[in-house]
Structure formats: C-alpha cells, structure tokens
Simulated assay, not measured.
Amino acid sequence: MTERRRWNDLRAEALASPSAREAYEAARIRFELGSAVRERREALGMTQAQLGQAAGLHQSAVARFEAGGTMPTLPLLERLADALGLRLQVGFEPLDRAG
C-alpha cells in the first residue's frame, strides 16, 4: 500500500517547478483582480451587465474576469476602474511584505 501524502506536501512538490510556480502566480493574480472587481461592483449595487455596459464589455466577459478566467490588460483594468468609480494604481511590493 502506498503512503498517503498531505496536500501541503503535494502542493510544495508541484510548485517546485518554475513553470508551475509561474502558472500558480498568474492564477493568483487573476483571482485577486476578479475578486476585487466583483466586491466593488456588488458594493455599488451593479449587475455584471451594468458594469459591462459602463466598461464597454459584454456581461459574459465581466463574468469570466470576475471568476479569474482571463488575464486583463492595463487598458482593460483602466476601463473597469473608471466604470467602478476608481483610479487604477499599479505598483510593486517587496516579496517579504506580499500576502
């Protein structure tokens, strides 16, 4: 019988590969951006269709973005920020302070 392994051990082993770490980081960024847009949209009481109309997107594109399904360009992020009454701010943070 094979030894059972813990999820954290399997995850660490999988992320030891540079390409896997890169894909994981890209997914994290997409998820965090999508979550931030969804939270702001909901706080404003907007539907995905309303946000899409204000940003020049289809509702389905907003849904995909909020689910973390697409990596946005800076111009798209600017359009979403404007439609949500925000200003896009891009910056760098030291890795020891990153969450």
Score class of each variant (00 low, 15 high):
Glu42Ala: 12
Asp82Pro: 01
Met71Asp: 14
Ala20Cys: 06
Arg21Val: 04
Glu66Arg: 04
Gln48Pro: 00
Val62Cys: 01
Leu15Arg: 01
Pro72Gln: 03
Gly56Ala: 06
His58Ala: 15
Ser35Pro: 00
Met1Val: 09
Asp9Ala: 13
Glu66Ala: 02
Glu3Phe: 09
Thr47Asp: 03
Val62Pro: 00
Ala20Thr: 09
Gly34Cys: 04
Asn8Val: 09
Gly91Leu: 10
Glu93Cys: 13
Asp82Arg: 15
Leu10Ile: 14
Arg41Thr: 07
Trp7Ser: 08
Ala54Val: 05
Asn8Asp: 13
Ser35Val: 10
Arg97Gly: 02
Ser35Tyr: 13
Asp82Gln: 14
Arg41Ala: 03
Glu25Ala: 15
Glu22Phe: 08
Gly68Glu: 06
Arg87Lys: 11
Val37Trp: 02
Arg21Lys: 10
Gly68Ala: 03
Gln59Lys: 12
Thr73His: 05
Arg4Thr: 13
Arg11Tyr: 07
Ser17Lys: 12
Arg40Tyr: 01
Tyr24His: 15
Pro94Asp: 07
Asp9Met: 05
Glu32Ile: 05
Val62Glu: 00
Leu51Lys: 01
Phe92Gly: 11
Thr47Ala: 05
Ala55Tyr: 05
Gly34Tyr: 02
Gly56Thr: 08
Leu10Asn: 08
Glu22Trp: 00
Ala98Val: 15
Ala63Ile: 02
Val37Met: 06
Glu78Arg: 12
Leu51Cys: 07
Trp7Pro: 00
Arg79Glu: 08
Glu93Leu: 15
His58Tyr: 12
Ala20Leu: 06
Met1Thr: 07
Pro75Asp: 04
Leu57Val: 06
Arg40Phe: 00
Val90Glu: 02
His58Phe: 12
Glu13Arg: 11
Thr73Lys: 11
Ala27Cys: 01
Thr73Pro: 08
Trp7Ile: 13
Ala26Pro: 01
Ile29Tyr: 11
Ala55His: 07
Val37Tyr: 03
Gln53Leu: 14
Ser60Tyr: 05
